[in-house]
Nucleic acid binder design. Structure first.
Length: 336
DNA sequence: AATCATTTCAACCGCTTTTTA
DNA sequence: TTAAAAAGCGGTTGAAATGAT
């Protein structure tokens, strides 16, 4: 059977979202078969995970997010999926794109301008990222023959340092820890960055709205709008696009009711449970599994001799705190 | 206003890893 | 135990948007 490629149309999105609302994400092979979509299962999965699934934040990256990515990239290399677990609202594809299009350039520029700022860590990271094919090495050291063990130890120390900084760099000095039962900040992050970002939440209300808006708009200004949903640029910038993705998918005040189906597959489960594979994955990529509250093994190992492992929810809090753009902007501005 | 160059990012491709039978 | 299928990942591409001239 012929498989369609290229940008997804709003109709296809509707079909896909409707199906997933009924059956949940996963079993992608059955999606084209049961929906009639002329897409391969891979394409369906990608469309869902990178674009349609609820909880994705789109739009400009905040400076704390940038810093987080830079540190994590220095630590983990181009392991975008692993990095994305620390930025739950961002997709690995988005982070990868942002790195390739913005951060790489920014860092290179920073290096060229003679990086004499006080932030030695970031200087190190930048050197690593730009000079060493995105892998953090101890490139400032000369490694004597037979001393690879020493080098390895140095790398481990650097990794520990980088991870510590990645997870705590934005810890506000005077902030109060979140209430134990209060919602995590990243679930409401769009309140802070509402103008620049978008949070998606699919529901039948929104889907019907999507359809309504699309059909009504198809006869108006834009002659060819088949890719209006696919084309994020128009929606994220809020200009030009007849069919604004935000208005279609966000759980805004207008469409406040969230479909009951959505409750069956809670946002958390969608983030975390789409892949059985994740539950068996190595610790570094494991931040979204059931025991998300605890530090992963490798993190525990990395933190171990620094006495940094405290209680279970610390990591999550650190992530949340560092994603809160309100604090420590000074730090970031020093960097950029 | 027109043309060309550059940037952005959604989607694809190929490969690896994991799961299933 | 093993082979096939499915899922996941990172690199890359190319159309569309944007910027420069």
């Amino acid at each position: 059977m012929e498989v369609k490629k290229g940008p997804w149309t709003p109709e296809e999105d509707i079909i896909l979202v409707s199906y997933i609302q009924q059956h949940g994400p996963g079993n992608w092979r059955s999606v084209p078969a049961n929906t009639g979509l002329l897409r391969c299962s891979k394409s369906c999965r990608l469309r869902w995970t990178n674009y349609l699934r609820p909880g994705i934040k789109r739009g400009n990256f905040t400076q704390p997010e940038e810093k987080m990515i830079i540190h994590l990239q220095a630590l983990l290399g181009n392991r975008w999926a692993a990095i994305a677990t620390y930025l739950p609202q961002r997709t690995d594809n988005d982070i990868k794109n942002y790195w390739n299009t913005h951060l790489k350039k920014k860092l290179k520029l920073k290096l060229q301008n003679g990086n004499t700022n006080e932030d030695n860590t970031v200087t190190t990271d930048v050197s690593c990222c730009v000079n060493n094919n995105n892998r953090c090495h101890t490139n400032k050291r000369t490694v004597n023959k037979g001393q690879w063990e020493k080098k390895l130890q140095t790398d481990i120390n650097l990794a520990k340092q980088a991870l510590f900084q990645a997870l705590s760099l934005d810890l506000p000095s005077s902030s109060t820890p979140p209430e134990p039962d209060s919602p995590k900040p990243h679930h409401h992050d769009h309140h802070h960055h509402h103008s620049a970002t978008t949070t998606y939440a699919s529901s039948t209300d929104n889907i019907s709205k999507l359809l309504r808006n699309w059909t009504s708009s198809s006869s108006s200004s834009r002659p060819n709008n088949t890719s209006s949903l696919s084309n994020n640029r128009s929606s994220s910038t809020g200009e030009g696009g007849v069919l604004d993705h935000h208005s279609l998918f966000s759980s805004n005040s207008e469409s406040g009711s969230v479909d009951e189906n959505l409750n069956l597959m809670s946002e958390t489960s969608i983030f975390q449970g789409a892949s059985k594979r994740n539950t068996h994955k190595e610790a570094t990529t494991n931040a979204t599994t059931d025991d998300q509250g605890s530090l992963s093994l490798i993190e525990q190992w990395l933190f171990d001799d620094q006495g940094l492992v405290q209680c279970g929810n610390d990591q999550e809090d650190l992530i949340d705190v560092s994603l809160d753009g309100k604090n420590n902007d000074n730090d970031s501005q020093d960097l950029f």
